[in-house]
Design a protein around this nucleic acid. Structure first.
Length: 192
DNA sequence: AGCACGATGCTCT
DNA sequence: GAGCATCGTGCTT
């Protein structure tokens, strides 16, 4: 499989969020290759989007979102959790896709052990499963250098995709309800 | 199966 | 000082 090039991310965030479904999130951890199929994403788009961290403008925290596409934006929340995003669109425009869930397909035993058998179907669950934290904030997802990237994967038909409102936002409409959450209906993937 | 709650510390007002 | 792009537990239906 092939690592997504920067151009993949240099597109409208809703397109990228949809395209990421079925792709493979890969992490090299202690020399082992761990991976999962991306099954849920959300789009966060610009300073106007009151659900997006960039509503606060350019700050130390949001700086990465203003940078080039294809980098990882990783933030800390609720005092204990890390969440992984892929930065999208042109440099200078703050937007990203939150990776909300994966279905483990490589290094499954290691992932299960790290998760104590609890699965990786949540934004903070998958970062914990793959050993992703703030130390990787800003790294390039378009090269294998940092040990974290996204590869081409399964082709997903429209029929298998469900849209809905983003989760956990307490913000004014329309931002609270715009259908910028993309989910893959339950599908069986071969183990390689 | 679903809801309420506490944990825990950073970010921005 | 308030709120948070969450998770796991424990209790209720």
């Amino acid at each position: 499989m092939k690592i997504n090039p920067r151009d993949f991310y240099a597109h409208p965030t809703l397109i990228v969020a949809r395209q990421l479904l079925g792709m493979r999130l890969v992490r090299i951890l202690d020399g082992a290759r761990l991976a999962g199929i991306i099954t849920e994403t959300e789009a966060y788009i610009g300073e106007q989007d009151l659900g997006c961290h960039a509503r606060a403008g350019r700050t130390k925290r949001t700086e990465v979102m203003y940078g080039p596409p294809g980098r990882a934006y990783i933030y800390f929340t609720y005092g204990m959790h890390w969440c992984l995003n892929a930065v999208t669109e042109a440099e200078g425009f703050p937007a990203a896709v939150l990776i909300r869930a994966i279905q483990p397909v490589e290094g499954v035993a290691i992932i299960a052990a790290r998760r104590q058998g609890r699965g990786a179907d949540g934004p903070a669950k998958l970062t914990q499963a793959l050993g992703i934290d703030g130390g990787l904030n800003g790294i390039d997802l378009c090269t294998p250098e940092a040990g974290l990237w996204i590869e081409t994967g399964e082709s997903i038909p429209e029929k298998s995709v469900t849209l809905g409102p983003r989760v956990g936002l307490n913000v004014p409409e329309p931002w609270k309800s715009v259908p910028w959450r993309f989910r893959l209906r339950r599908v069986h993937f071969p183990a390689q």
